[in-house]
Simulated assay, not measured.
Amino acid sequence: MTYLNTTISVKIKKIRVGRGIGSGKGKTSGRGVKGQKSRSGVAIKSFEGGQMPLYRRLPKRGFNPIRRDKIAKINLDLLNKLLDSNKISSSEKINLEYLKKNKIISKSVTQFKVLGNGELNSKLNIEADFSSKSAIQKVEKAGGSILVKSNKD
């Protein structure tokens, strides 16, 4: 005879280990023989039965900030080469959006800095997040201007 939608609860007796040979869990109490795992009070730290342990499943973070801004560093000699190869125009205002649009820097870059390595031959209007002092001097010497949004140098 079958009964629908009924659950039968059966109380299962707790296994009492170490209570004699007749119980089937006597002497070594189901722990096997000798070794670290047979001793009381000893656990193998972070061992998960062969499963990949949690500390190896999670990514490493360490000393690298996760949300660090990507800053593109552009030297004056690179700007000069881009002018010579007509990839940028001296009449345009050179800023982050302009450099991304012309595929000079990556789309993931959030800020850019102008550095003073090299010489500049023509005047440029640059709008940068950061700039070195030597870059500002060299651009102004060439007749251009740098508008720095936030200068940390």
Rank of each mutant, 00 (worst) to 15 (best):
S38Q: 09
S40V: 14
G41F: 01
G41T: 00
V42G: 02
V42T: 09
I44S: 05
I44Q: 04
K45L: 13
K45H: 08
S46C: 06
S46T: 10
F47Q: 01
F47T: 04
E48S: 04
G50N: 01
G50D: 01
Q51M: 10
Q51N: 12
P53T: 02
P53Y: 00
P53H: 00
Y55L: 09
Y55I: 08
Y55H: 13
R56E: 10
R56H: 06
R56C: 05
R57S: 06
R57K: 14
R57L: 05
L58T: 13
L58A: 12
L58S: 10
P59C: 01
P59E: 08
K60M: 08
K60P: 00
R61F: 04
R61C: 05
G62L: 04
F63N: 10
F63P: 08
N64V: 09
P65N: 11
P65W: 12
I66W: 07
R67N: 14
R67I: 09
R67Y: 14
R68L: 10
R68W: 07
D69T: 06
D69I: 04
K70T: 04
K70V: 02
I71T: 11
I71Y: 02
A72W: 00
K73V: 15
K73Y: 07
K73C: 10
I74Y: 01
N75E: 13
N75M: 04
N75G: 11
N75R: 11
N75L: 03
L76T: 02
L76D: 01
D77N: 14
D77G: 09
L79A: 02
L79H: 03
N80C: 14
N80Y: 07
K81R: 15
K81N: 14
K81F: 07
L82P: 03
L83N: 04
L83E: 06
D84V: 12
S85F: 12
S85M: 10
N86R: 14
K87H: 12
K87L: 12
I88P: 00
I88G: 01
I88N: 02
I88V: 05
S90V: 01
S90Q: 12
S91I: 10
S91A: 12
E92F: 14
E92A: 12
E92H: 15
K93W: 07
I94V: 11
I94M: 02
I94H: 00
N95F: 04
N95E: 12
N95L: 03
L96H: 05
E97Y: 13
E97H: 12
L99H: 03
L99S: 03
K100A: 03
N102D: 07
N102G: 05
S106W: 05
S106M: 09
K107N: 15
K107I: 15
S108A: 15
S108N: 15
V109I: 15
V109P: 02
T110Q: 15
